[in-house]
Design a protein around this nucleic acid. Structure first.
Lengths: 329, 329
DNA sequence: GTAAGGATTGTTAGCGCTAACAATTGCCTC
DNA sequence: GAGGCAATTGTTAGCGCTAACAATCCTTAC
């Protein structure tokens, strides 16, 4: 910086002022400084900046299952939004999701002195772990539950489940069976809740839900069970990957979809439109989730917003062949 | 740090020595310092450290298509390996892959003064863009091509393609058709090369490859074309997503897999085992790719390794139902 | 003509840490 | 017991930047 200052014939402080957009710098000086910066290829040192401003311009993301479509997409959305706001994103991937790992990840990030953290916390335990995080660290929770006194951004899972359940009922199914996700996942819980409420509202009997672990293999296992039952006419599977497993099991047992049973998923992974048959599902706008979480986080960082807000992103029903047509009588 | 020093009755420099594992510190002193650190909940300031050591302990990852299975898995592997080595990972996702964007991403990261960069560069253009990156910045290229004078980690795509092609020939197919990826992708090129070479080695005729864009939709389009031809007995599709599209098109046209045509993919996405039929494919060890790229990068950062190395991770053939059994005669 | 006030620039101090050197202590050798 | 060496600890000087205050110059008002 002193080299630039010398080249431009000013003090290093004036260079700093130019770089920080300070209002009272003469246009001519500003031009000279920019010229010198250009000429010398100068970049200011973020460590020195961070040291004195106490702002690293880095936000941390604690994420889990980043190889899955949903979290990967959310991470991408967060990164986009952050980079547009001039922030960097530092990632801490969790190998397992429990108090211990979440705490460690947040600790790791705050040792790096991030300005704030977005926690992708799909399990209650992860949300609980946040109570141990210092309250002065700006935190936004994504896809988690309430209760941590933190701002929250999520897709309305229950509404999505209700949408798809209603759609199945409207297609003529007497009731809708459900292959749920792991019981400790909040998203799984919310989808089950939405499904149950919609059935009750529609006066349909509520069958006992089956439980998978999000994997195609577990969906396949549940599909085998459902294929045995003669009274299954429609199934709402809690994610597209498990739905694929269900479709596979049905196919092997000779259960036709949508001829014999209607099947719907959740997520709208890119493959869903090319399953056999193409899968009706719920689309989630992960980009919006990423952007809103950054908005909330920057609100806390820059303007000291204290109150915890909640942003709910609406889901969208995507109807494909797997739920079209009347089920058998 | 001075507070800790005072609490432990030593100088701040001794605290620094303890924290940095300096050899000559008396055990008793070390214990007292750790005690004071614990008691005060002290964490050292990374910005100050970075300022004086000129090491940020952050490595940057330039990545593209992070919502795809391969890149997402690679990113995850990189993050794991880096965090074990005490480094943080800062991500810069590209919206498009061209010289401009790659250059900007690297510039963004180096303004953050990362210690090194891993570039996931699946296109030649991205590799070329690296020639403009200062040679003193440690860089490792993943899944890219040679020529940038940079260290390289990749899965042996050509070997994988050869494996799967040979397998299809061994199943009795007279030749193997190919749905390739985008021509400007290095991985697509290598897979095509491996496929062609294996056919030539086996004395089979080499059909004109079709080209998709990795998406299920493009695979579907190619599948429609292939379904029209009576002489297609086996198809090697350059990734699993497109293979799904091909399977879908075949299914719609009444082409049975594997009864009429054998189909194989590449990647072994978690869904592949549950496609209809389960898909023969090539598994890539993305975790190994991530770990090795960090190894190479840290070699450059810590030991000043200059020579550009190349690490090739071998792929693995996973045989499933889609290629089992004789094709029709 | 002069004081007040704004615009612009410079000077100084320190953010929290580590590197380099200096100082102190204890122990061993002869 | 003096000298020498190693082990341990302390002192000092920045790393590159921004905040706060100080200084200068130019207007404008009376």
């Amino acid at each position: 910086m002193v080299d630039v200052a010398r080249a431009a014939g000013v003090s290093h402080q004036t260079v700093s002022r130019v770089l920080n957009g300070h209002p009272s710098v003469a246009p001519a000086t500003k031009a000279r400084v920019y010229g010198a910066i250009e000429e010398l290829g100068y970049r200011r040192n973020p460590a020195a900046r961070a040291l004195v401003t106490r702002r690293s311009h880095v936000i941390g993301v604690v994420s889990f299952g980043t190889t899955l479509y949903g979290p990967a997409s959310t991470l991408f959305g967060i990164e986009q939004a952050a980079s547009r706001a001039g922030y960097f994103v530092s990632v801490a991937s969790l190998e397992a999701i429990d108090r211990q790992h979440v705490r460690e990840a947040v600790a790791r990030l705050s040792e790096q002195s991030v300005d704030g953290v977005v926690v992708i916390a799909p399990q209650q335990e992860a949300v609980d772990a946040l109570s141990e995080v210092p309250a002065e660290l700006p935190v936004v929770v994504v896809e988690g539950g309430e209760g941590a006194g933190r701002s929250l951004v999520c897709v309305d899972q229950a509404a999505g489940a209700a949408l798809v359940t209603r759609h199945l009922l409207e297609q003529g199914a007497p009731t809708v069976w459900h292959v749920a996700g792991p019981v400790d996942w909040l998203e799984a819980q919310a989808r089950t809740t939405g499904w149950r409420r919609e059935l009750e509202d529609g006066g349909a009997k509520v069958p006992e839900p089956l439980h998978g672990d999000w994997s195609p293999a577990s969906g396949y296992a549940c599909g085998q069970v459902l294929a045995e039952r003669a009274d299954v006419r429609a199934v709402f599977v809690a994610n597209d990957q498990m739905a694929l497993g269900v479709l596979r099991a049905f196919h092997e047992r000779g259960v036709r979809v949508p001829g014999d049973v209607l099947v719907a998923g959740f997520d709208d992974v890119p493959e869903a439109a090319y399953f056999t048959p193409p899968l009706t599902t719920i689309r989630q706008d992960f980009t919006a989730v990423g952007h809103r979480s950054i908005d909330l986080l920057l609100g806390q960082i820059d303007h000291g917003d204290q109150e915890s807000r909640m942003e709910v992103v609406p889901p969208e029903l995507v109807v494909r062949q797997s739920t079209i047509g009347q089920p058998r009588h």
